Computed example of a mutant assay.
Amino acid sequence: MANKTFKLNTGQDIPAIGLGTWQSAPGQVKTAVSYALKVGYRLVDGAYCYGNEDEVGEGLKEAFESGVVKREDVFVVSKVWATYNTRVELGLDKSLKSLGLDYVDLFLVHWPLLMNPEGNDDKFPKLPNGERDIIRDYNHVDTWKQMEKLLATGKTKAIGVSNYSKRYLEQLLPHATVIPAVNQIENHPSLPQQEIVDLCKEKGIHIMAYSPLGSTGGPMFEAEPVVKVAEKHSVTPAAVLLSYHIPRGSTVLAKSVTPDRIKENLHSLIDLDDEDMKLLNGYSDNLVKEGKVKRYVYPPFGVQFGFPDKL
């Protein structure tokens, strides 16, 4: 399972599991990335906004120079931040410089909004009242048109989106000459987002799931169906929550800077059978019906992104 891949609409192979670097503590990211590649990870997910791409780049360099892995065998992901959505090539150039790379394998629109590129902060400009400085008449389709032009530069092999709802995808797709290769979304049994998953499957857009354990501390570890499936297979709840995405046809991002946990996450993936998925999907369906789905990642942008649980 650790070596499993999926095929993108570009023809690229994307690993089924990758190392996430969001919120990883400064000073630990380099070692985490280098170690992850040493033990078998072949996908590293990052973003300009995370503020640690310099360390990600150092970890990649260490792994490449040690001979553990070659650049062409690692799938590197980055994202254009919301203050650069009118300057996407500049955003990509900044990430490439930090990463020490000539290209990334996938470049995503991090969020479909524009924060003031001329505001009082490079990443989180604010208005005098403390609210985020957002350009309200921005059209996210304009960013996608810039993304499409990146492909001719060779600086990224594929382009995609992140945090896109069904509504936003339906706004984007009629104007796209390149269909996004990926939509990276928060995804787990407590937030199945099936309407997005189904639309992406129909359009050939691959789902990449972040926050698969729910959030910091693994709040889903005690969910009854997760515990039941874990006991059945004699594995941890974390193993079930990571493995849940594979039969869904999705890539999952496992985040840790602890060597033992990094290794365990990769090698704990198991084959969940139809009975397991029926149990987990039933849990999800009930949460949807009862209006009790739980989204753990929703920055205070003050923008309506079209997610049913945030209407």
Rank of each mutant, 00 (worst) to 15 (best):
Y50M: 02
L90R: 10
L99P: 02
L43C: 12
A36I: 00
V235T: 06
E195F: 07
D271L: 02
Q28P: 00
V252C: 02
W22Q: 05
K30N: 10
S24R: 03
P174T: 11
L213C: 12
V88Q: 10
L150P: 12
F75A: 07
I196W: 00
S24D: 07
S250G: 00
F221Q: 03
S268N: 12
G217S: 11
E222M: 01
L150I: 14
F64H: 04
K70L: 06
G51S: 05
N163H: 07
K292T: 14
N187V: 01
L266P: 02
P26A: 03
R132W: 13
D121N: 13
T156H: 10
P237Y: 06
M115C: 06
V80G: 14
Y283F: 15
M1Q: 07
S234A: 13
E72T: 13
E65H: 11
D198V: 13
Q12Y: 09
C49Y: 04
L279Q: 13
Y164C: 11
I179H: 03
L279M: 15
G20K: 07
I179D: 09
D54W: 05
K7C: 01
V56Y: 00
G119N: 04
L199A: 10
D274N: 14
K4Y: 00
Y35H: 15
Y296I: 03
R71Y: 00
V104G: 06
C49H: 03
V252R: 03
V104P: 05
P237M: 03
V297C: 09
G291R: 04
Y298N: 14
P300W: 01
